[in-house]
């Protein structure tokens, strides 16, 4: 078989050397930016680790499971267990509250329960929730939420002092709500309309369509949003500091004060010196690792779910 002469391209104009050079330049620039982010991340991690090194040497891994936190000179003892406990507990609690609420809001806003115009306004309002500074959330917690909780618990004769794991978790849940709602709504709205029609066409109810088709199809986006929210909850500092009570103890009651790593750092850094700085840095490093684990876990879950549905 002979190879025919290929017909000339529709335009005889060939790309000039400068054009090709520009392409390469663009590629290089993008690569540099991407590497910069990577470098930044590594630098932060290394810096924290280097500063934490004295404490790492001193306390080793037992830092993770001891509860003493005593910065008094001569009697120094540092253990981060109550703060890890507080961090994980407040995050988990806030997720427990915010996930159903956020997913419900997202569904409501992506379905046509109400006219589009009102929906658009509501979507905007939810996103506005994310724009409120965390110190304002803290103040709201102190002046509105805690008095309200006090009154509520008072009805049942339960004494409630105020700053506590519960108060912090509740405010955290409000703070992460817009993240979960916005991302879930986006992934639900991005589903092809054929999916919905296909389900309705088979005689599915709206309820069945939402829970058996739409949520499973959007699950990777929803989980992604939840994990992002979890990251935010774990790292949130200001509002939590104002509400959590900052007590370095492990208490089984949610009504008792506790502490989180981020809150610990915010409270103690200003006056810390010597080995305490190192201990705080060690705690910060642990927070970074915790967040990293959460992110890896999230990625793994999203992959697992996608593999199931794609």
């Amino acid at each position: 078989m002979t190879v025919g002469i290929p017909s000339p391209p529709p335009s005889s104009r060939s790309r000039s050397a400068t054009e090709k050079e520009l392409d390469r330049l663009f590629e290089g620039t993008a690569l540099t930016f991407a590497l910069f982010i990577l470098l930044l991340l590594v630098a932060i991690g290394l810096l924290v680790l280097v500063q934490a090194w004295p404490a790492v040497k001193e306390y080793g891994l037992s830092f993770l499971w001891t509860s003493a936190w005593n910065p008094v000179e001569g009697r120094q003892a540092f253990g981060v267990l109550p703060m890890v406990y507080g961090t994980l507990l407040t995050s988990a609690l806030s997720l427990l509250i915010a996930v159903p609420l956020g997913l419900g809001t997202a569904l409501f806003l992506s379905e046509n329960f109400i006219p589009l115009k009102i929906r658009t306004v509501l979507v905007f309002l939810v996103e506005l929730l994310a724009a409120i500074p965390s110190v304002v959330y803290g103040l709201w917690g102190i002046f509105v939420l805690i008095p309200a909780l006090k009154w509520c618990f008072g009805l049942f004769g339960v004494s409630f002092t105020g700053p506590s794991i519960l108060a912090a978790s509740l405010v955290l849940s409000v703070m992460i709500l817009p993240i979960i709602t916005a991302i879930s709504r986006d992934s639900l709205a991005a589903l092809p309309p054929e999916l919905r029609q296909g389900s309705y066409g088979l005689g599915a109810t709206r309820w069945g369509t939402i829970f058996r088709v739409l949520i499973p199809a959007a699950i990777s986006g929803i989980v992604g949003g939840v994990m992002l929210a979890l990251g935010r909850a774990m790292g949130e500092t200001m509002a939590v500091t104002m509400l959590v009570g900052n007590a370095n103890t492990i208490s089984s009651s949610l009504l008792q004060p506790g502490n989180t790593i981020a809150s610990l750092l915010a409270n103690q850094f200003a006056e810390a010196k010597g080995i305490q700085v190192a201990a705080l840095m060690y705690a910060a490093f642990i927070l970074v690792i915790l967040t990293l684990i959460v992110n890896i876990l999230a990625d793994w879950i999203v992959r697992k779910l996608q593999a199931k549905y794609d």
């Binding site: 005689g203 599915a204 499973p216 199809a217 549905y309």
Partner: peptide, 27 residues
Amino acid sequence: VEVRRRIGMVFQKPNPFPKTIYDNIAY
């Protein structure tokens, strides 16, 4: 919903659900 169970529909673009082949039919 009752109407659509008796009068089914096949669409222009194939629109299987993001489920297994079995579950697509069983849905």
